[in-house]
Amino acid sequence: MIDQKQVQLANMELWKQWKEQGLIHARQTLIESYLPLVEYVSGRMAIGLPKSVSKDDLSSFGVMGLIDAIEKFDYARGLQFETYASWRIRGSIIDGLRQGDWVPRSVREKAKKVEEAYQKLEQQYLRSVTDQEISTFLQISEQDFQQMLQDISITTICSIDDPIREEESETRLSLIVDEKAKNPEYQVNEFYLKDSLAKAIDRLTEKERTVVSLFYFEELSLSEIAEVMCLSPSRISQLHSKAILRLKGVLGRFKNQLFQDN
């Protein structure tokens, strides 16, 4: 505990030296001290990516995100740098991969078809649809559907710098606001969004809910989840993809309703 406090005090001094005095050596020391965070984030994101994606490339993109975070972070606000930097590192890695055309257009088209299938069928039946129903809707076999899920598993990550709608420049990051500045309209929309997500999560299968919980709340990697659930990593990847596509379908319906109301 004492060591951790000493580290925090040392880092605070480094932040002061860098932000207030502009000392380059303090900036460099901060970068070096937070490099393990880059390895952690890139390691989690490497799960499920094609073998052609180099771990070194992920780390390189991540370091750029870390540097950007150190440049923009306001230590005086008392926020936790690790949380802020993790978002920046993750976003930088995703941006780097997309600039390198790491996901073929055909794979993105498959993901879009599956997402639309979940959105239409679950809106029609008002329940969680089965793999067989999705397969029938897509006019493919269940085996081909499982393979499709495996193919598109690499697309179920997103950046807060992504545009909300393809034809617009507004990003998810632009919607992050100070909680103290919420207006009534925002609060109403937020309430219905949370309610929609809660209902969508309830509709997930037990295994899908478990994967989402372990991955996003317990912060386990997909390989670690596979060990916990006694399933193969590829099966965990499929469950994760299905859960995300279901949730995206719900968010798509919420977005459409929001724009229609406006």
Rank of each mutant, 00 (worst) to 15 (best):
L173M: 12
D261M: 12
E167L: 05
F217E: 15
V114E: 00
V188D: 11
L251Y: 03
R98D: 06
E32Q: 12
D57N: 08
A46I: 04
R88F: 15
V38P: 00
S223R: 04
D195N: 06
G91P: 03
I164Q: 05
I201C: 11
Q124F: 13
E109R: 09
N183W: 06
M45E: 11
G252I: 13
P233G: 09
W15L: 09
T136N: 12
G91K: 00
Q4K: 10
P36W: 06
E166L: 13
S241V: 11
G43Q: 11
S42N: 04
Q99H: 04
L30Y: 02
R203C: 05
L222M: 09
K199D: 10
K112Y: 07
S241N: 12
Q146I: 10
S135Q: 09
I164R: 04
S221T: 14
V53P: 02
I67E: 08
E170N: 03
P50A: 08
G22T: 14
K199W: 05
Y75Q: 04
V250N: 01
P50Y: 09
L175R: 12
Q80A: 11
V211I: 14
F254A: 15
D68R: 08
Q17W: 04
L197W: 11
K182C: 07
Q21L: 09
D162V: 02
E13D: 10
F254N: 02
Y34M: 14
L214M: 14
D195W: 09
D3Q: 06
E190R: 12
R253L: 15
D56Q: 08
T83S: 13
D74P: 02
F73N: 04
V211M: 05
V41M: 04
D161W: 12
D151Q: 09
F254G: 05
S153D: 05
Q132P: 00
E39Q: 07
L214S: 11
L37K: 02
E190D: 15
Q143P: 00
D56C: 03
A76D: 06
M45W: 04
Q8D: 10
R44V: 01
E116S: 09
Q123K: 13
L121T: 03
Q124L: 15
D95P: 00
I236V: 13
L49R: 15
E109T: 08
L49A: 09
Q260T: 10
V53D: 12
E206A: 09
R44F: 11
L58C: 09
K182M: 08
E115D: 13
G65M: 01
H240F: 10
Y216V: 07
L121R: 00
A46K: 10
E20R: 09
K242P: 00
V7Y: 05
I31Q: 15
S60G: 08
S232N: 06
I89H: 01
E142P: 02
I176S: 07
D131P: 00
F61Y: 13
R253D: 09
Q146V: 07
Y34D: 05
V212F: 03
K242R: 15
V228W: 10
A226D: 13
R98V: 03
E122W: 02
I134V: 11
R209L: 06
I2N: 15
I31V: 14
T155W: 01
L37F: 07
S52V: 07
S174T: 05
L258M: 10
Q150T: 07
I244W: 00
I89P: 00
L79A: 05
W102C: 08
E71G: 02
A243Q: 01
T171C: 08
L23D: 13
